[in-house]
């Protein structure tokens, strides 16, 4: 297998972000106990973050050596977002984000029902009725198996306590 010789759009931006992330991680690791001793709690985090920093620099060097991709929007950050997070994925991530925020508020049943219905409707595009039936059936199955059969504790809502 040969390595790609042309950059994926946004690859350089991502590599730079990783270098910055690794540098911040090293700074935070150093803040734990500094270089005060060989058996201090900060030694391993510093070792790990230093490894990350060096390897991210190697990754960045490798990316910079690749040929530039075909010009797109002209903005590196916009290229990165367009490549790594296309519209449909952003919509999915937004749905999931709304779901995880809603979970502790509305409880598992209501939040999951809303999430499954919207996700099936938006992604499968078979109409609201199909999405409704499918989400009700799958949520019923999940609830039956995990809550009723396996006795798993599911998130309960704080907005409507006792309801879900």
């Amino acid at each position: 297998m040969t390595a790609q010789s042309v950059r994926i759009r946004g690859e350089a931006t991502f590599a730079i972000l990783l270098v910055v992330f690794a540098a911040l991680a090293f700074w935070q690791s150093h803040a734990i106990s500094g270089f005060s001793g060989l058996s201090e709690p900060g030694v391993f985090p510093m070792l790990a973050s230093a490894t990350m920093l060096v390897s991210s620099l190697f990754v960045l060097r490798g990316v910079l050596r690749k040929d530039l991709p075909a010009p797109a929007s002209g903005s590196t950050l916009r290229d990165f977002l367009a490549e790594a997070l296309p519209a449909r994925l952003v919509m999915m991530v937004a749905l999931v984000l709304a779901y995880v925020i809603a979970l502790p508020l509305f409880g598992f049943v209501a939040a999951s029902a809303l999430f499954l219905f919207s996700a099936f409707w938006v992604m499968w595009r078979r109409g609201p009725l199909v999405a409704l039936v499918l989400s009700a059936a799958s949520l019923g199955g999940i609830y039956l198996i995990f809550r009723t059969l396996f006795q798993v504790v599911l998130p309960r809502g704080t907005l409507f306590p006792g309801l879900f």
Binding site: A119, M123, W124, I142
Partner: peptide, 11 residues
Amino acid sequence: PRAILIPLIIV
């Protein structure tokens, strides 16, 4: 279809 599998995996 993946459109059904993906939301279920998330839940």
